[in-house]
Design a binder for these strands. Structure first.
Lengths: 186, 186
DNA sequence: TACAATTTTCACATCTTCCTAAAAGGAATA
DNA sequence: TATTCCTTTTAGGAAGATGTGAAAATTGTA
Protein backbone atom coordinates (compact mmCIF):
# COMPACT_ATOMS: atom_id res chain seq x y z
CA UNK A 1 0.00 0.00 0.00
CA UNK A 2 2.79 2.30 0.87
CA UNK A 3 4.56 1.59 -2.40
CA UNK A 4 1.46 2.35 -4.36
CA UNK A 5 1.12 5.75 -2.76
CA UNK A 6 4.76 6.50 -3.54
CA UNK A 7 4.21 5.32 -7.06
CA UNK A 8 1.32 7.66 -7.51
CA UNK A 9 3.33 10.58 -6.21
CA UNK A 10 6.08 9.83 -8.70
CA UNK A 11 3.62 9.66 -11.52
CA UNK A 12 2.06 12.94 -10.56
CA UNK A 13 5.51 14.48 -10.46
CA UNK A 14 6.12 13.08 -13.92
CA UNK A 15 3.00 14.67 -15.31
CA UNK A 16 3.89 17.94 -13.64
CA UNK A 17 7.30 17.85 -15.27
CA UNK A 18 5.77 17.32 -18.68
CA UNK A 19 3.45 20.19 -18.07
CA UNK A 20 6.20 22.51 -16.94
CA UNK A 21 8.18 21.57 -20.01
CA UNK A 22 5.16 22.39 -22.12
CA UNK A 23 4.84 25.81 -20.54
CA UNK A 24 8.52 26.29 -21.14
CA UNK A 25 7.96 25.82 -24.85
CA UNK A 26 4.97 28.11 -24.91
CA UNK A 27 6.96 30.98 -23.49
CA UNK A 28 7.66 32.46 -26.90
CA UNK A 29 4.01 32.42 -27.77
CA UNK A 30 3.11 34.26 -24.59
CA UNK A 31 5.96 36.69 -24.94
CA UNK A 32 7.55 35.84 -21.62
CA UNK A 33 10.86 34.23 -20.71
CA UNK A 34 11.03 30.44 -20.50
CA UNK A 35 11.83 30.40 -16.82
CA UNK A 36 8.99 32.72 -16.01
CA UNK A 37 6.77 30.36 -17.92
CA UNK A 38 8.07 27.27 -16.14
CA UNK A 39 7.49 28.78 -12.76
CA UNK A 40 3.99 29.72 -13.69
CA UNK A 41 3.43 26.28 -15.13
CA UNK A 42 4.42 24.65 -11.89
CA UNK A 43 2.17 26.90 -9.86
CA UNK A 44 -0.73 26.32 -12.19
CA UNK A 45 -0.50 22.57 -12.42
CA UNK A 46 0.04 21.91 -8.73
CA UNK A 47 -2.71 24.32 -7.87
CA UNK A 48 -1.16 25.07 -4.52
CA UNK A 49 0.73 27.92 -2.94
CA UNK A 50 4.48 27.31 -3.09
CA UNK A 51 7.38 29.11 -1.47
CA UNK A 52 10.47 30.27 -3.29
CA UNK A 53 12.36 27.33 -1.84
CA UNK A 54 9.79 24.88 -3.09
CA UNK A 55 10.16 26.27 -6.57
CA UNK A 56 13.95 26.38 -6.44
CA UNK A 57 14.11 22.76 -5.43
CA UNK A 58 11.52 21.55 -7.82
CA UNK A 59 12.79 23.33 -10.91
CA UNK A 60 16.47 23.64 -10.04
CA UNK A 61 16.56 27.39 -10.48
CA UNK A 62 18.59 29.80 -8.43
CA UNK A 63 17.00 31.92 -5.74
CA UNK A 64 17.64 35.20 -7.49
CA UNK A 65 16.14 33.95 -10.69
CA UNK A 66 13.03 32.67 -8.95
CA UNK A 67 12.67 35.94 -7.12
CA UNK A 68 12.91 38.06 -10.25
CA UNK A 69 10.54 35.96 -12.25
CA UNK A 70 7.99 35.70 -9.50
CA UNK A 71 7.92 39.48 -9.23
CA UNK A 72 7.19 39.71 -12.90
CA UNK A 73 4.47 37.11 -12.68
CA UNK A 74 2.88 39.03 -9.84
CA UNK A 75 3.21 42.24 -11.82
CA UNK A 76 1.47 40.63 -14.78
CA UNK A 77 -1.27 39.45 -12.45
CA UNK A 78 -0.83 35.78 -13.26
CA UNK A 79 0.33 34.93 -9.77
CA UNK A 80 -0.47 36.38 -6.41
CA UNK A 81 1.37 36.49 -3.11
CA UNK A 82 -0.12 34.52 -0.27
CA UNK A 83 0.76 35.13 3.34
CA UNK A 84 0.37 32.22 5.65
CA UNK A 85 -0.32 33.11 9.20
CA UNK A 86 2.51 32.18 11.52
CA UNK A 87 4.97 31.84 8.69
CA UNK A 88 7.50 34.43 7.58
CA UNK A 89 7.91 33.02 4.15
CA UNK A 90 5.84 34.24 1.30
CA UNK A 91 3.92 31.80 -0.79
CA UNK A 92 2.79 32.13 -4.36
CA UNK A 93 -0.29 30.90 -6.10
CA UNK A 94 -1.36 30.96 -9.73
CA UNK A 95 -4.65 32.17 -11.07
CA UNK A 96 -6.83 29.18 -11.74
CA UNK A 97 -9.15 30.49 -14.43
CA UNK A 98 -7.65 29.79 -17.84
CA UNK A 99 -9.79 32.40 -19.56
CA UNK A 100 -8.61 35.01 -17.16
CA UNK A 101 -4.99 34.02 -17.64
CA UNK A 102 -5.38 34.23 -21.37
CA UNK A 103 -6.94 37.66 -21.14
CA UNK A 104 -4.23 38.99 -18.88
CA UNK A 105 -1.47 37.86 -21.18
CA UNK A 106 -3.22 39.23 -24.23
CA UNK A 107 -3.68 42.58 -22.57
CA UNK A 108 -0.08 42.80 -21.52
CA UNK A 109 1.06 42.15 -25.04
CA UNK A 110 -1.36 44.64 -26.40
CA UNK A 111 -0.24 47.40 -24.10
CA UNK A 112 3.44 46.64 -24.39
CA UNK A 113 3.59 46.03 -28.10
CA UNK A 114 0.53 46.91 -30.14
CA UNK A 115 0.18 50.39 -28.75
CA UNK A 116 3.78 51.20 -29.62
CA UNK A 117 3.28 49.91 -33.11
CA UNK A 118 0.22 52.02 -33.68
CA UNK A 119 2.06 55.15 -32.65
CA UNK A 120 4.92 54.52 -35.01
CA UNK A 121 2.56 53.74 -37.85
CA UNK A 122 0.68 56.94 -37.26
CA UNK A 123 3.92 58.88 -37.37
CA UNK A 124 5.03 57.18 -40.59
CA UNK A 125 1.71 57.90 -42.17
CA UNK A 126 1.79 61.55 -41.22
CA UNK A 127 5.20 61.97 -42.78
CA UNK A 128 3.78 60.78 -46.07
CA UNK A 129 0.88 63.17 -46.34
CA UNK A 130 0.78 66.20 -48.65
CA UNK A 131 0.98 68.48 -45.62
CA UNK A 132 4.40 67.21 -44.67
CA UNK A 133 5.68 66.21 -48.06
CA UNK A 134 4.35 69.00 -50.25
CA UNK A 135 3.40 68.55 -53.86
CA UNK A 136 5.59 65.52 -54.37
CA UNK A 137 3.41 63.48 -52.07
CA UNK A 138 1.34 62.82 -55.14
CA UNK A 139 4.27 61.14 -56.88
CA UNK A 140 4.12 57.43 -57.23
CA UNK A 141 6.70 56.33 -54.64
CA UNK A 142 5.25 58.43 -51.87
CA UNK A 143 1.72 57.36 -52.75
CA UNK A 144 2.54 53.71 -52.68
CA UNK A 145 4.24 53.94 -49.33
CA UNK A 146 1.41 55.91 -47.88
CA UNK A 147 -1.06 53.30 -49.03
CA UNK A 148 0.90 50.45 -47.54
CA UNK A 149 1.36 52.11 -44.20
CA UNK A 150 -2.26 53.06 -44.19
CA UNK A 151 -3.51 49.55 -44.96
CA UNK A 152 -1.58 48.23 -42.03
CA UNK A 153 -2.71 51.01 -39.82
CA UNK A 154 -6.33 50.32 -40.62
CA UNK A 155 -6.00 46.62 -39.94
CA UNK A 156 -4.22 47.07 -36.65
CA UNK A 157 -6.59 49.78 -35.51
CA UNK A 158 -9.49 47.48 -36.17
CA UNK A 159 -7.92 44.59 -34.34
CA UNK A 160 -6.95 46.89 -31.53
CA UNK A 161 -10.43 48.22 -31.02
CA UNK A 162 -11.80 44.70 -30.98
CA UNK A 163 -9.19 43.67 -28.47
CA UNK A 164 -10.13 46.61 -26.33
CA UNK A 165 -13.67 45.46 -26.29
CA UNK A 166 -13.16 41.75 -25.91
CA UNK A 167 -10.10 41.57 -23.72
CA UNK A 168 -11.32 44.09 -21.23
CA UNK A 169 -12.36 41.25 -19.00
CA UNK A 170 -12.33 37.52 -19.40
CA UNK A 171 -16.07 37.60 -19.85
CA UNK A 172 -15.47 39.53 -23.02
CA UNK A 173 -13.24 36.83 -24.34
CA UNK A 174 -15.83 34.19 -23.57
CA UNK A 175 -18.44 36.17 -25.45
CA UNK A 176 -16.22 36.58 -28.46
CA UNK A 177 -15.34 32.93 -28.63
CA UNK A 178 -18.93 31.89 -28.24
CA UNK A 179 -19.98 34.25 -30.95
CA UNK A 180 -17.46 32.85 -33.35
CA UNK A 181 -18.24 29.29 -32.41
CA UNK A 182 -21.90 29.93 -33.11
CA UNK A 183 -21.07 31.31 -36.48
CA UNK A 184 -19.08 28.23 -37.22
CA UNK A 185 -22.08 26.01 -36.80
CA UNK A 186 -24.13 27.70 -39.43
CA UNK B 1 13.97 71.52 -58.22
CA UNK B 2 16.71 69.01 -58.14
CA UNK B 3 17.29 69.58 -54.47
CA UNK B 4 13.63 69.14 -53.74
CA UNK B 5 13.59 65.78 -55.45
CA UNK B 6 16.65 64.72 -53.47
CA UNK B 7 15.01 65.96 -50.33
CA UNK B 8 11.95 63.90 -50.99
CA UNK B 9 14.00 60.81 -51.60
CA UNK B 10 15.77 61.32 -48.29
CA UNK B 11 12.50 61.71 -46.48
CA UNK B 12 11.08 58.60 -48.03
CA UNK B 13 14.19 56.74 -46.97
CA UNK B 14 13.69 58.09 -43.48
CA UNK B 15 10.15 56.82 -43.30
CA UNK B 16 11.27 53.48 -44.65
CA UNK B 17 13.89 53.25 -41.94
CA UNK B 18 11.32 53.94 -39.27
CA UNK B 19 9.11 51.31 -40.71
CA UNK B 20 11.86 48.72 -40.89
CA UNK B 21 12.75 49.49 -37.31
CA UNK B 22 9.12 48.97 -36.36
CA UNK B 23 9.05 45.61 -38.06
CA UNK B 24 12.23 44.75 -36.25
CA UNK B 25 10.49 45.31 -32.95
CA UNK B 26 7.45 43.35 -33.98
CA UNK B 27 9.51 40.28 -34.71
CA UNK B 28 8.85 38.78 -31.30
CA UNK B 29 5.14 39.19 -31.75
CA UNK B 30 5.25 37.41 -35.08
CA UNK B 31 7.56 34.71 -33.82
CA UNK B 32 10.27 35.37 -36.38
CA UNK B 33 13.82 36.63 -36.07
CA UNK B 34 14.41 40.39 -36.10
CA UNK B 35 16.43 40.31 -39.29
CA UNK B 36 13.86 38.27 -41.10
CA UNK B 37 11.33 40.85 -40.01
CA UNK B 38 13.45 43.79 -41.14
CA UNK B 39 13.94 42.32 -44.56
CA UNK B 40 10.26 41.73 -44.93
CA UNK B 41 9.56 45.21 -43.64
CA UNK B 42 11.75 46.73 -46.31
CA UNK B 43 10.13 44.68 -49.05
CA UNK B 44 6.68 45.56 -47.84
CA UNK B 45 7.16 49.27 -47.44
CA UNK B 46 9.01 49.86 -50.68
CA UNK B 47 6.51 47.72 -52.51
CA UNK B 48 9.05 46.82 -55.14
CA UNK B 49 11.08 43.77 -56.06
CA UNK B 50 14.59 44.02 -54.63
CA UNK B 51 17.69 41.94 -55.21
CA UNK B 52 19.84 40.51 -52.47
CA UNK B 53 22.37 43.25 -53.10
CA UNK B 54 19.76 45.95 -52.74
CA UNK B 55 18.79 44.54 -49.39
CA UNK B 56 22.36 44.05 -48.20
CA UNK B 57 23.18 47.63 -49.00
CA UNK B 58 20.06 49.12 -47.61
CA UNK B 59 20.01 47.22 -44.32
CA UNK B 60 23.73 46.57 -43.88
CA UNK B 61 23.32 42.83 -43.54
CA UNK B 62 25.74 40.22 -44.83
CA UNK B 63 25.01 38.24 -47.94
CA UNK B 64 24.70 34.93 -46.15
CA UNK B 65 22.29 36.34 -43.65
CA UNK B 66 20.10 37.89 -46.31
CA UNK B 67 20.08 34.66 -48.26
CA UNK B 68 19.03 32.53 -45.32
CA UNK B 69 16.32 34.87 -44.17
CA UNK B 70 14.91 35.37 -47.63
CA UNK B 71 14.60 31.62 -48.01
CA UNK B 72 12.61 31.48 -44.82
CA UNK B 73 10.39 34.33 -45.91
CA UNK B 74 9.71 32.55 -49.17
CA UNK B 75 9.04 29.33 -47.27
CA UNK B 76 6.55 31.13 -45.05
CA UNK B 77 4.90 32.54 -48.13
CA UNK B 78 5.37 36.17 -47.14
CA UNK B 79 7.73 36.88 -50.00
CA UNK B 80 8.00 35.51 -53.47
CA UNK B 81 10.83 35.21 -55.94
CA UNK B 82 10.58 37.30 -59.06
CA UNK B 83 12.58 36.65 -62.19
CA UNK B 84 13.25 39.59 -64.41
CA UNK B 85 13.74 38.79 -68.00
CA UNK B 86 17.23 39.49 -69.21
CA UNK B 87 18.62 39.52 -65.69
CA UNK B 88 20.29 36.65 -63.91
CA UNK B 89 19.71 38.01 -60.48
CA UNK B 90 16.69 37.00 -58.53
CA UNK B 91 14.45 39.62 -57.12
CA UNK B 92 12.14 39.41 -54.16
CA UNK B 93 8.77 40.94 -53.54
CA UNK B 94 6.52 40.99 -50.50
CA UNK B 95 2.87 40.10 -50.41
CA UNK B 96 0.89 43.29 -50.45
CA UNK B 97 -2.33 42.24 -48.74
CA UNK B 98 -2.05 42.81 -45.03
CA UNK B 99 -4.88 40.42 -44.22
CA UNK B 100 -3.19 37.69 -46.12
CA UNK B 101 0.12 38.34 -44.39
CA UNK B 102 -1.56 38.22 -41.04
CA UNK B 103 -3.24 34.95 -41.84
CA UNK B 104 -0.06 33.35 -43.06
CA UNK B 105 1.84 34.22 -39.94
CA UNK B 106 -0.98 33.10 -37.70
CA UNK B 107 -1.15 29.77 -39.47
CA UNK B 108 2.55 29.20 -39.20
CA UNK B 109 2.45 29.78 -35.49
CA UNK B 110 -0.53 27.56 -35.08
CA UNK B 111 1.04 24.66 -36.89
CA UNK B 112 4.42 25.07 -35.30
CA UNK B 113 3.29 25.71 -31.77
CA UNK B 114 -0.35 25.15 -30.96
CA UNK B 115 -0.54 21.68 -32.42
CA UNK B 116 2.42 20.53 -30.34
CA UNK B 117 0.84 21.95 -27.24
CA UNK B 118 -2.41 20.14 -27.80
CA UNK B 119 -0.64 16.83 -28.15
CA UNK B 120 1.25 17.24 -24.92
CA UNK B 121 -1.86 18.30 -23.08
CA UNK B 122 -3.71 15.27 -24.32
CA UNK B 123 -0.92 13.05 -23.10
CA UNK B 124 -0.85 14.71 -19.69
CA UNK B 125 -4.56 14.34 -19.37
CA UNK B 126 -4.50 10.67 -20.24
CA UNK B 127 -1.92 10.00 -17.59
CA UNK B 128 -4.27 11.39 -14.97
CA UNK B 129 -7.30 9.27 -15.76
CA UNK B 130 -8.47 6.33 -13.64
CA UNK B 131 -7.46 3.97 -16.45
CA UNK B 132 -3.81 4.89 -16.12
CA UNK B 133 -3.70 5.85 -12.49
CA UNK B 134 -5.96 3.25 -10.93
CA UNK B 135 -8.08 3.86 -7.88
CA UNK B 136 -5.94 6.69 -6.60
CA UNK B 137 -6.96 8.87 -9.50
CA UNK B 138 -9.89 9.82 -7.34
CA UNK B 139 -7.62 11.23 -4.67
CA UNK B 140 -7.52 14.98 -4.35
CA UNK B 141 -4.13 15.79 -5.89
CA UNK B 142 -4.72 13.75 -9.01
CA UNK B 143 -8.20 15.15 -9.41
CA UNK B 144 -7.07 18.71 -9.15
CA UNK B 145 -4.32 18.24 -11.71
CA UNK B 146 -6.66 16.50 -14.06
CA UNK B 147 -9.09 19.35 -13.84
CA UNK B 148 -6.47 21.98 -14.52
CA UNK B 149 -5.06 20.18 -17.51
CA UNK B 150 -8.52 19.57 -18.79
CA UNK B 151 -9.60 23.20 -18.48
CA UNK B 152 -6.66 24.26 -20.52
CA UNK B 153 -7.21 21.55 -23.03
CA UNK B 154 -10.78 22.59 -23.55
CA UNK B 155 -9.90 26.22 -24.02
CA UNK B 156 -7.13 25.53 -26.47
CA UNK B 157 -9.17 23.03 -28.42
CA UNK B 158 -11.89 25.61 -28.80
CA UNK B 159 -9.50 28.31 -29.91
CA UNK B 160 -7.81 25.88 -32.22
CA UNK B 161 -10.99 24.88 -33.96
CA UNK B 162 -11.92 28.51 -34.43
CA UNK B 163 -8.51 29.25 -35.81
CA UNK B 164 -8.89 26.39 -38.21
CA UNK B 165 -12.06 27.87 -39.50
CA UNK B 166 -11.10 31.51 -39.58
CA UNK B 167 -7.48 31.38 -40.54
CA UNK B 168 -7.94 28.96 -43.37
CA UNK B 169 -7.87 31.84 -45.77
CA UNK B 170 -7.67 35.57 -45.33
CA UNK B 171 -11.31 35.81 -46.21
CA UNK B 172 -12.02 33.87 -43.07
CA UNK B 173 -10.18 36.38 -41.00
CA UNK B 174 -12.11 39.21 -42.58
CA UNK B 175 -15.36 37.49 -41.79
CA UNK B 176 -14.42 36.94 -38.19
CA UNK B 177 -13.34 40.51 -37.67
CA UNK B 178 -16.46 41.85 -39.29
CA UNK B 179 -18.59 39.62 -37.17
CA UNK B 180 -16.99 40.84 -34.00
CA UNK B 181 -17.09 44.44 -35.12
CA UNK B 182 -20.80 44.13 -35.78
CA UNK B 183 -21.34 42.75 -32.34
CA UNK B 184 -19.49 45.67 -30.90
CA UNK B 185 -21.94 48.15 -32.35
CA UNK B 186 -24.89 46.72 -30.56
C1' DT C 1 32.19 22.23 -71.83
C1' DA C 2 34.20 26.17 -69.79
C1' DC C 3 33.32 30.34 -67.75
C1' DA C 4 31.07 33.95 -65.18
C1' DA C 5 27.43 35.43 -62.22
C1' DT C 6 24.79 34.45 -58.39
C1' DT C 7 23.21 31.93 -54.38
C1' DT C 8 23.76 28.79 -50.60
C1' DT C 9 26.15 26.64 -46.98
C1' DC C 10 28.90 26.40 -42.89
C1' DA C 11 32.57 27.04 -39.48
C1' DC C 12 33.60 30.59 -36.73
C1' DA C 13 32.83 35.13 -34.35
C1' DT C 14 29.71 38.25 -32.04
C1' DC C 15 25.99 39.62 -29.54
C1' DT C 16 22.21 39.23 -26.53
C1' DT C 17 19.75 37.17 -23.22
C1' DC C 18 19.40 34.68 -19.20
C1' DC C 19 21.20 32.68 -14.97
C1' DT C 20 23.92 32.35 -10.88
C1' DA C 21 26.09 33.42 -6.58
C1' DA C 22 27.02 36.61 -3.34
C1' DA C 23 26.14 40.79 -1.09
C1' DA C 24 22.87 44.17 0.31
C1' DG C 25 18.36 45.18 1.95
C1' DG C 26 14.12 44.58 4.85
C1' DA C 27 11.03 42.71 8.10
C1' DA C 28 9.78 40.03 12.10
C1' DT C 29 11.23 38.42 16.67
C1' DA C 30 13.56 38.56 21.00
C1' DT D 1 18.58 47.19 18.98
C1' DA D 2 20.59 42.94 17.64
C1' DT D 3 19.65 38.81 15.42
C1' DT D 4 17.68 35.85 12.26
C1' DC D 5 15.20 34.72 8.40
C1' DC D 6 13.89 35.81 3.97
C1' DT D 7 13.85 38.61 -0.42
C1' DT D 8 15.82 41.63 -3.83
C1' DT D 9 19.53 43.49 -6.42
C1' DT D 10 23.57 43.22 -9.14
C1' DA D 11 27.98 42.16 -11.40
C1' DG D 12 29.83 38.84 -13.98
C1' DG D 13 29.70 34.60 -16.60
C1' DA D 14 27.49 30.78 -19.44
C1' DA D 15 24.40 29.36 -23.01
C1' DG D 16 22.00 30.14 -26.87
C1' DA D 17 20.78 32.79 -30.79
C1' DT D 18 22.30 35.50 -34.73
C1' DG D 19 25.42 37.32 -37.98
C1' DT D 20 29.67 37.08 -40.98
C1' DG D 21 32.71 35.94 -44.76
C1' DA D 22 34.57 32.94 -47.72
C1' DA D 23 34.36 28.48 -49.95
C1' DA D 24 31.32 25.37 -52.34
C1' DA D 25 27.43 24.73 -55.10
C1' DT D 26 24.36 26.11 -58.54
C1' DT D 27 22.67 28.37 -62.46
C1' DG D 28 22.85 30.60 -66.71
C1' DT D 29 25.64 31.93 -71.02
C1' DA D 30 28.82 31.52 -74.74
Amino acid sequence: MKTRAADIAARLAGVEDQFVELWNNMAGLWGISPTMARIHGLLYITGSALSMDDIMDRLAISRGNVSMNLSKLVEWGLVRRVHRRGARKEYFESLSDVWEMFTLVANQRKRREIDLILNTLRRCRDELTPETLGALAAAEPAQKRFQRVNELFKLLTLIDSLAQRFFESHRGLREAVELLAQEEDR
